[in-house]
Design a protein around this nucleic acid. Sequence first.
DNA 1: GTATCTGCAAATCCTTTGCAAGTCA
DNA 2: TGACTTGCAAAGGATTTGCAGATAC
Lengths: 140, 140
Amino acid sequence: MEKTGDIINRLTEQGYRLTPQRMMVLAAIEKSDHHISAEEIYAQVVAKYPYFNISTVYRTLELLHRLGLVTETDLGGGRVRYHPADKGHHHHLVCQECGKVIDLDESVLDHLKLVLRKDYKFDPDTRHLAFFGRCADCSK
Amino acid sequence: MEKTGDIINRLTEQGYRLTPQRMMVLAAIEKSDHHISAEEIYAQVVAKYPYFNISTVYRTLELLHRLGLVTETDLGGGRVRYHPADKGHHHHLVCQECGKVIDLDESVLDHLKLVLRKDYKFDPDTRHLAFFGRCADCSK
DNA sequence: GTATCTGCAAATCCTTTGCAAGTCA
DNA sequence: TGACTTGCAAAGGATTTGCAGATAC
């Protein structure tokens, strides 16, 4: 769990406190192999520590995001999802039918990123791009 | 205003009623040259007709969307935006810094769409794709 | 010791829903 | 007339905030 350790170091280095609540939030984020929502983090932590409150999840996520330690992704559906910033870049295909999220290899977008930078002077967030549409199962 | 007329025809053809409220919602959508939110539609219509209610906006948009007459786009920020389906396809560069939305020519995405369909069996919503990032002004 | 954090409750924002009254066709 | 629509009010889900008590350092 060296990634969690990294984030912990960054927190303490910057003068933030290491509370059990923050450690449990971090553990939940790291453990999840996909993007995780505030609600899901809350569910995991409250199972261990019943007094835990969801506002602490939001406050912790806001802090981690401000420090650049997690990435926020709005994949639609009125729910933002979070992901450790150091876990590598990838993109998403979001099925508007069933809600499934498919990860997309980064290289697929190389050409597009070039065009956006060159012709539009737009610097895309290379960590998370989202494409909405319909997945194979729902296209049948 | 022939586009509005088109939509009106589609509504009546399908047995839906033509109410003043619906016409005012349609006018607001057509008048807007960019994507418009429910809140903005409401503000425009209520200025003319004070009894107008925002739930009517949502119900009308849901109907128009169901009939394929408007497109819903979730550009993040917890607010869905609407656009007449017949006003042509285009895509968006959304600046996460200042919120500006830049329209993007459809052809830029031809190659990408091909790959998504072929390699991922994913049928992207070719009407609205959103890219998040940073615009020229905010990159300075 | 004390500034930072947390839990709790209430508030906010956007959207949806139930229902009775109103209205288009 | 009668089914479709609306206005109103209340509910809903996700997120934010104020505040007083708790705690990491």
